[in-house]
Design a protein around this nucleic acid. Structure first.
Length: 587
RNA sequence: GCAGCCAUAGCUCAGCUGGAUAGAGCGCUUCCCUGCGAAGGAAGAGGUCGGACGUUCAAAUCGUCCUGGCUGCACCA
């Protein structure tokens, strides 16, 4: 069906076209800079140029000839080269209420259910490492992209990919074992059992393994000769040595368990979890095959693909010690995905921009392999700290768990300061919702091609353009509805009364923009557009709350406005849900 | 050196398929709770849209060049 926004812009475009007999597109109908000018505007520049006329005169002619009869337009004025159109308040609000009530959860979804399968790879968190706020941005972005794309009618397969093998794992396990004088060759299954028993339950986490990895990196940078030891550990691992395999599997499980919990916390749905260990052998075969076919060659003992002619440099696909690396596995992963989801229409890779060049190399190499399925790289900028980038070497990594706990603690304090009578459980639950809103909105409101500089103090603010601000606006509307139903208990209906308040019309117009915003967010893969719409809507709701009495108005007006309040609350709640934010009953 | 991204108010950012006086939030200065919840609202100060040139009736927006910052560019992922 045609939404209110579409109706208005198409209708105005058609009626403007009728005045002069010249075609005007609905996309040429825009919003004026100031609502006092009108609700829609048409600039006459193009027509003026084509007809060799003065745009100011043209605007006056259009305004005079415009037929309002039968439209929602109540006023047409020419202001300079623009024709401004004002919507009738009552008609505008009714149309929006009808849309939302009729479409419900489908409001803003695509009319055409495309049914295309979209693969989205995100949450590439490695095992044997801590999960930090850099990963957090990736997961939060991924979740909102999944929500938005699904709403627009795609069948989204959410996939995660985890580096559970490779150099970083070898370094970590090497450090773990060598601290007990266990070497690549001397280690036994029994020794591994003994080693694992020495590690306390509290240390059986990715975070602990991350610290071990950092220690290993430090040791290696101080003593180059240790590199050979790590290399032999990696070779043992790739050869499935029983002792190393046991140590690997056991420690890997700690990481996987931890991830499962965190993904659950963040509402990160994962339909298919890929592990590098599933694909690296296939990757090695692909590398050999590429060498045989002459696509790859040997350079300095390693296997490379020469992409110089595409200005993509040399692409390393197998290390000189024969072991695999990131690229080896990614080649195989692309093939595996295509096997498992043969009819996919798009394959998105949500990875930070530092890897943009690498993905260019990867995709080009896949093409040379004869891989002809579509591939898309979706970049986003990194998360950094005020005093520079996070790195295990500097030891300044802000983990997700620490950050989350800090925000939850702060949310609890805020709740207790205004609801001393709440049960402990209620405080816990609401603090969770508010903290997640703060974290997610904070990361989503700014465009993903902007570096996110993490600032705890700023992240702990719940004032202004924040998730809790948006929740609060929805909660206040909920509070009105709750009070109303205690009195009447009736189902809300549109009555014959007339909406007449300018502030409520402005809220209606913001709500009418929702479908367009979701569409654009899906097209451009920009969840920030949804976040900014939510904030704009919350602001309009707060203005409505300030200016328009609901419970205190006349009986018929009250019923009608309650209806509108329900619609506004539902739409904002839905927008927030795309960001992974839920709205508590009270806060 | 080559490539990518970024540059808008003190700070963090919207706006960018060209159009009407450049918008928010934070911070700052004043106000507003016996009022549908003050996690709110009102008012104010604060800007050569990094610089130059170009395209155009019209440039924060497009193009070229420059400057500054960040990030990549073979055995990390």
């Amino acid at each position: 069906m045609q939404t209110a926004w579409q109706h208005w812009t198409y209708d105005i475009a058609r009626r403007v076209s009728a005045t002069l007999g010249i075609h005007v597109e609905s996309s040429e109908i825009v919003a004026p800079p100031d609502p006092t000018l009108g609700d829609f505007a048409f600039g006459c520049f193009r027509l003026a140029k084509e007809g060799q006329k003065n745009p100011i005169v043209l605007a006056q002619e259009i305004a005079k000839a415009f037929e309002k009869q039968g439209s929602d337009i109540t006023q047409v004025t020419a202001t300079g080269p623009y024709v401004n159109f004002t919507l009738a308040t009552d008609a505008a609000i009714r149309r929006v209420i009808e849309d939302v009530e009729e479409m419900g959860e489908e409001y803003g979804s695509s009319e055409i259910k495309s049914d295309q399968t979209v693969l989205l790879e995100y949450a590439q968190v490695n095992t044997h490492k801590e999960i930090h706020i850099g990963h957090l941005r990736n997961v939060i972005l991924g979740v909102s992209l999944i929500n938005v794309l699904k709403h627009r009618g795609s069948r989204v397969i959410a996939m995660s990919y985890h580096g559970d093998v490779g150099a970083h794992v070898a370094k970590c396990l090497w450090k773990l074992a060598y601290s007990l004088q266990l070497t690549a060759n001397s280690i036994t299954v029994e020794a591994v059992t003994g080693l694992l028993e020495k590690i306390s339950d509290g240390d059986r986490t990715g975070e602990y393994l991350g610290r071990v990895y950092a220690d290993a990196t430090r040791a290696l940078s101080e003593d180059e000769s240790l590199k050979d030891q790590v290399s032999s550990v990696q070779q043992k691992l790739e050869a499935h040595d029983p002792a190393w395999e046991k140590l690997w599997q056991e420690t890997r499980q700690w990481s996987l368990d931890e991830m499962k919990v965190i993904f659950y916390e963040l509402d990160a749905v994962i339909d298919r979890q890929y592990l590098e260990s599933e694909v690296y052998e296939r990757g090695l075969r692909i590398a050999d095959d590429l060498l045989k076919k002459g696509v790859a060659k040997i350079s300095e003992g390693a296997m490379v693909v020469d992409l110089e002619e595409k200005k993509l440099g040399m692409f390393l696909i197998r290390k000189s010690d024969g072991t695999s690396l990131y690229a080896t596995k990614d080649l195989a992963l692309a093939e595996l995905k295509a096997e498992e989801y043969p009819s996919y229409a798009r394959s998105l890779h949500l990875v930070d921009t530092r890897q943009a060049f690498y993905f260019g190399q990867l995709f080009e190499t896949l093409r040379r392999m004869g891989f002809d399925k579509p591939l898309e790289y979706v970049g986003y900028e990194l998360v950094t700290l005020k005093d520079g980038a996070m790195s295990s070497r500097k030891g300044n990594i802000v983990t997700y768990a620490d950050f989350r706990d800090a925000v939850i603690d702060y949310a609890k304090q805020e709740i207790l300061s205004r609801h001393a009578d709440w049960s402990e459980q209620k405080v816990e639950d609401v603090a969770w919702d508010i903290a997640m809103a703060g974290i997610k909105f904070g990361m989503l409101k700014q465009d993903s091609d902007k570096i996110y500089t993490f600032d705890l103090e700023q992240a702990l603010s719940f004032d202004g353009a924040t998730g809790p601000y948006c929740q609060y606006a929805a909660t206040r509307l909920g509070s009105i509805l709750k009070k109303a139903s205690q009195v009447t208990g009736n189902r809300l209906q549109v009555t014959s009364t007339t909406f007449d308040h300018l502030t409520e019309k402005q809220l209606a117009i913001v709500l009418a923009k929702f479908p367009r915003v979701i569409e654009e967010a899906a097209e451009k893969l920009k969840p920030s557009l949804v976040a900014n719409w939510c904030f704009e809507t919350a602001q309009a709701i707060n203005a409505f709350y300030r200016d328009v009495p609901v419970l205190e108005s006349t009986a018929e007006m009250r019923e009608a406005r309650l209806n509108f309040v329900a619609v506004a609350r539902q739409t904002l709640t839905q927008g927030l849900s795309f960001l992974g934010i839920s709205v508590p009953e009270e806060m």
